[in-house]
């Protein structure tokens, strides 16, 4: 897995969920994707026009643009296992 991860986190203001999501994401990336990721945080309160492009409806939403396929993870990213599966870092494990 030499490819870089392009991650976008959509938030709406500094809500507790947004803050938690960003913290969880940073921690997780440092652990599993050290050195090969970039995180872009988009605040929809400031740029509402960007919501349509990535089909955002829930907040917070993490969008993995690269590598393909595009995946979305919504929520505060508190379940590490699910996030890793969602980002295709770890294959889905039964149970």
């Amino acid at each position: 897995m030499g490819k870089a991860y392009e991650l976008r986190l959509y938030v709406a203001g500094k809500t507790s969920k947004s803050v938690a999501a960003l913290e969880n994401l940073k921690k997780l990336c440092e652990e599993h994707l050290k050195g090969k990721y970039s995180i872009e945080v988009i605040d929809l309160l400031e740029k509402p026009q960007l919501a349509e492009g990535d089909q955002i409806f829930a907040i917070p939403t993490l969008v993995k643009k690269v590598p393909e396929p595009v995946r979305k993870i919504i929520g505060d990213l508190s379940n590490e296992e699910k996030v890793l599966v969602g980002l295709d870092i770890r294959a889905k494990i039964k149970n």
Partner: peptide
């Protein structure tokens, strides 16, 4: 199939989108 849910979220994104439109 594209969406994974982890933890708390709300639909603020939809509201913002609608409000913007």
């Amino acid at each position: 199939s594209e969406i994974e849910e982890t933890g708390e979220y709300d639909l603020e994104g939809l509201f913002i989108r609608l409000g913007y439109a």
